[in-house]
Amino acid sequence: MDVKPDTLVRNRKPVISGATKGRVILDGREMLLLTANNYLGLAADEEIVSRACDAIRQYGLGSTLNPPLATTPLHDALCDALAQFHQVDAALLFNSCTSANVAVACTLVGKGDRIFSDRLNHASIVDGCRLSSAEAIVYEHGDLDDLGALLATPFDGRKLVISDGVFSMEGNFADLPGLIALCRKHDALLVVDESHAAGVAGPGGRGTAALQECLGQIDLYTGTLSKAFGGAAGGYVAGRADLIHRLHDNGRFYIFTSSIPASSAAGALAAIERIMRGDDAVRRLADNTRRLRYGLQSLGLTLLGDSHPITPILIGDEEKALALSRGLLDEGVYIAAITYPVVARGEARLRAQPSAAHSLDDIDDAVSAVGRVARRLGIL
């Protein structure tokens, strides 16, 4: 039986009319947007959009070919740029970072091997571990002692440790030097998902490893083009050449799909080239993040994370979190509420994300609106 649209009102999502910027038209109203992954404000950048449009005119909407069968100069140039950005040997493109994470978990280890995954890893990593024929072992979030004890258990198979660089619901960073030391000690591969760090964190926006001064010591990065790199469709794996070759030749989530559109490759390439030319947008994002966090903390709200733009405002009660998000819409500010099952019960939050596209006045307006609505609801 078909489901009628009016039965889905409960799950209705806001409708954005136009490009994603610091302010958008949402359900017909101008809205200050602090719930997008458009970290550097490049999704509507004229140069980047123009290069994507040029690629559509030259290559069409898509290649309609599987990645192993053919490529374009744009796809090859993007792989080279990603490898240069992360300072590694090579890179490989996927439809999404979800596909990249699943490919890594299902290709580099298998039956008789083990994957060690942080408890708060992104759902795509969790699903990749479940789909892999390797034994998946979860260690407590950020607990290197727990991971070390698990890795030390006698075992003859291959070992792979996988972790978010930045945890998407917490806004905190993994301890990469600690993970590197454990992986070297116990002969394990280390894979780091940099979806929320590449283009965002560290000197030049080069990610968690750059921030923690351990570039060149990670076996593989996974990442997405859909956030800091202009919001383009697609994901990637970047790292050691031998591992990239294995994913190219044996990765089912790479082989049995279509290539990302040339327009996405062109837009992402333009974004990465922009970031590598200068870090003005990265600096603006850092300034906006500091201002937002300071303002919210000054109100007396409890924030999670630290210096990352992901700024979770911990509310706890789900109904209050939802009410706060709805109240902010009335004030012209969109910050999404995150509730169970995305986070644990009792840990409902609003997940604010500033962008380089915001002005300092935008940030101040958002803080003021949060204060007004939170006081009205009795949260403050």
Rank of each mutant, 00 (worst) to 15 (best):
F173T: 07
S298A: 11
F253K: 11
A286S: 15
A136M: 14
V88W: 09
R326F: 13
S355C: 03
A197T: 06
A103V: 01
I137C: 13
L380H: 07
L61K: 15
L92D: 08
H141Y: 06
A91T: 11
D175I: 00
H122V: 02
N11I: 13
D146C: 02
A321P: 01
V15S: 10
Q87Y: 04
G178M: 07
A210Y: 07
T7H: 00
I315F: 03
I260K: 10
L269S: 10
L78F: 11
T71G: 06
D364H: 09
L42A: 09
A270S: 15
C106W: 04
A323Y: 04
H245V: 08
G231H: 01
I310E: 08
G204E: 06
A232Q: 13
D362V: 02
A100R: 00
E46F: 15
A374S: 10
L269Q: 15
V88L: 10
K159L: 04
C183S: 08
Y254W: 12
G204F: 09
P154H: 11
G371P: 04
C53K: 15
S17R: 11
L42E: 13
S117L: 15
I115M: 08
R57H: 14
V109C: 10
A123N: 11
S325V: 02
P261F: 10
D143C: 03
E46G: 00
L179A: 14
D330A: 12
M31P: 09
G18R: 09
R290Q: 14
L299M: 09
T311R: 06
Y254D: 13
T35D: 11
I244K: 14
A105W: 05
H141N: 12
L182N: 05
D145C: 00
F116W: 10
M31I: 07
F85L: 02
G267Y: 05
D54W: 08
I115A: 00
A174C: 10
P341C: 02
A233C: 04
I244Q: 14
A197W: 10
D27S: 03
L176I: 15
H186I: 03
A321R: 01
T7S: 14
A188Q: 07
S168G: 09
E46H: 15
L26Q: 06
N66I: 02
V138P: 09
C214K: 08
L350E: 02
P5M: 07
R375Y: 06
L61F: 09
R158M: 11
D80P: 02
Q84E: 14
G199F: 04
D362S: 04
Q87M: 13
G171L: 09
D219R: 00
